[in-house]
Amino acid sequence: MLTKQKFWINDMEAITCIMFILIVIGTINICSASLITAYTNFENPYFFLIRHLISLLIGFVAFALTSRFNYKKLKNKSLLLTVITILSLSAVLIMGVTVNGSKRWLSLGFMQFQPSEIAKIVTIIISASYLGQCIDKKIPITVNPQKNIIFLLCLIIAGFVEAQPDMGTALIIIGIPTIMYFIAGLSKKWIGIICGIGFILLTLLATFQPYRLDRINSWYDPWSRSQEDGYQIVQSILAIGSGGFSGMGLGHGFSKYSYLPESHTDFAFAVFCQEIGFMGAFIVFLLLIALAFYCIKIALRTKDNFGKMLVCGITLLIVGQATGNMAMVIGIVPVVGVPLPFISYGGTSLILNMISIGLVLSVDRHNHIIKKSTKNETITTPPIKYLSKKKHLYRLK
């Protein structure tokens, strides 16, 4: 009798393999996309690749440790993680490294560190802790600061990031916990209040800085401003379109020759599309969908509500950023500076994304341990009276 063969041994193997494939694709793309910029600025064509490989090594170690770590211990560390995050974001505003007019990095000597990347995962952890507890105890979920300080802390952390300024990351930091609240069962009343206040705040933030209005105008009609604010998005669209179905070939794209700004960071996907074409872009798209699928499977079968909400938040973080970056690169949304996970250059982002995937594996691993321990429980021996009855019946037969 033929047995059905599985492509993956389990969902953990599937997620790990998908992540490694995306990392390989990203490493090759970063090497190609950053060659010219690295040589022009540092006289070393492999400057960014070397730094990427160092971050990758750290990420592998962090991933291995996190996947074996008991994620439930994070609930007791929520306050400590929040304090560390707020202090590091405060340090950025005081002594941070300024790049392109924004203070987003702290210098560690051998590398620069971006605390806002930590803020993304920390807000997910503290939100999952609160929501999991509410679901366990059947407590109504609310964002009222008098009853729930967690959502207020997420707003404060997002405010620190916005002050850098980094509106794109700030929206992720507050947006993902908000969606997690919706998933957990937030009342329609509070959903309406959040949507209304959020729309007002977005409008105010968009008009607060003149360059944000320019980005919106250039997004609406980039071709009329192709030599001004719309230059970046126009060059991105041209790069993607020139790649066609099969691309120009790895290393043969011309947009990285100072035509497309941030060609190895936020717009790395445009260079990838130009060199590998629609075929390569579609493969990355399918890999991200598969990653989301297996993460959702883990979330659905996880009995622990903290773990369930944690996996939901991490899935939203990885796939949500990927969706935002792709939409930005092809001109569907304004330029907001969101990286493409595992594909765009960024050491802190890469390490934190690998840690996030490690936490997903930790949730699934401990879920399997609980199931195995339940199945292997010893069966208590039946009462003596029952045994005697069974024995008597056997004799009669």
Rank of each mutant, 00 (worst) to 15 (best):
Q114L: 08
P115K: 05
P115M: 02
P115R: 08
P115Y: 09
S116P: 12
E117M: 08
E117N: 01
E117K: 02
I118D: 00
I118Y: 12
I118C: 11
I118W: 11
A119G: 14
A119Y: 10
V122P: 11
I124C: 11
I126D: 11
S127C: 11
S127P: 00
S127A: 12
S129G: 04
S129F: 08
Y130C: 01
G132K: 08
G132N: 06
G132Q: 10
G132T: 02
Q133I: 04
C134E: 02
D136V: 06
D136I: 07
K137F: 13
K137R: 15
K137H: 12
K138C: 07
I139D: 08
I141D: 05
T142Q: 03
T142L: 04
T142P: 06
T142V: 04
V143S: 14
P145M: 07
Q146C: 07
N148H: 15
N148Q: 13
I150V: 15
I150H: 12
I150A: 08
F151V: 07
L153I: 12
C154P: 12
C154R: 03
C154H: 04
L155Y: 10
A158W: 03
G159D: 01
F160C: 05
F160L: 09
F160S: 00
V161I: 09
V161F: 11
V161Y: 10
V161M: 01
E162P: 07
E162I: 09
E162M: 15
A163V: 02
P165N: 05
M167N: 08
A170R: 05
L171T: 01
I173M: 09
I173L: 06
I173K: 08
I174E: 02
I174G: 12
G175A: 11
I176R: 13
I176D: 07
P177R: 02
P177G: 11
T178W: 15
T178Q: 07
M180R: 13
F182Q: 12
G185N: 03
G185M: 01
L186S: 00
L186W: 03
S187K: 13
K188C: 05
K189S: 12
K189P: 00
W190K: 13
W190C: 09
W190L: 06
I191R: 15
G192H: 09
I193L: 15
